[in-house]
Amino acid sequence: MNVGRIGGLLSRHLYLYQRSVARLLEIFYWPFLDLVVWGFITIYLAKQGNELHGAVTFFLGALILWDVLFRAQQGIALSFLEEMWARNLMNLFASPLTVGEYLVATMVMSILKVTAVGSLMMLFALLVYSYDIFAIGMALIPFIFNLLLSGWIIGVLTTSIIMRFGQQAEVLAWGMVFLFQPISCVFYPMEVLPDILQHIAWLVPPSHVFEGMRQVLLSGEFPGAHLIWATGLNTIFLVGMVLWFYHTFNICKERGMLVRVGE
C-alpha cells in the first residue's frame, strides 16, 4: 500500500471539488433541505402532544446519522463515476496504482465528505432546532464508525455494478443506498416491520446502529449488543465486498470492459 499514490488520487478529487460549485452544492444542498423539512416536521409533532416521546431527538438524530451512511456510500461511488465521466480510468489503472490503493483513496474521500456534511448538519441542528446530537453520548463515535463502514460496503457494491454494467447503472450511485433504508429502521423501530423483514433487518448493520440510537435516547443505556452486531456484520460484509470488487475488476479486465467503461 503506497501512501503517495493514495494521496495522488485524493488530490485529483480535491482539485475537482475546490473549483466546482455544483459539486459542493450537491454535497450540502440536500442534507440542508432534509434537515429543514424534518426539523419542521418534528417541531409540528412535538406541538401535537407527547404521543411520540422524544420525536425531535429521534428524527433529527436519525436524519444526521443516515446522512453519514449516505455520504460515505457516495464518497466511493461518485469517485468512480467522476473517473468514468472524465475517461480517466485508463490513466489510473495503467499506472502503478493498485486496486487496494484505489479503494482506500475513495474511502478517505468519503471520510472527508462525511466530516464536512456531518459537521454542517450538526451545527445547523444545534443553531436552528437547539438539537445537540452529542446527547447520544459516547455511543455516537462507534455509531458513526459503523455507518461509515456500511456506507463503504454499499459504495463498493455500487461501484462494482457500475464498473460491470457501465453508464446504464450509474443511477445506482444515488439510488442504491435507499434500497437499504426500509430495512435499516432509520426512522422507526425494528418491531414495526413484518416478521420476515425483521429477520432480514437483523442482518443489516445500520439497523443495529439506529436501534442502538433509540436505546440510548430512551433508556440512556449503552447499546453494547447492537454495536457488537453492527461491527461484526460490517467486518464480514466489508471483507466480502472488497473481495467481490477484486473479482469484478478481474472479470472486467478479462472481458476488456475496463477500457470501455463509460463509453
Binding site: R5, G8, S11
Partner: peptide, 9 residues
C-alpha cells in the same frame, strides 16, 4: 500533471 506525478511516485 501533478496527480500523475504522485501516482508514479
Amino acid at each position: 500533471l501533478k496527480v500523475i506525478a504522485r501516482l508514479y511516485g
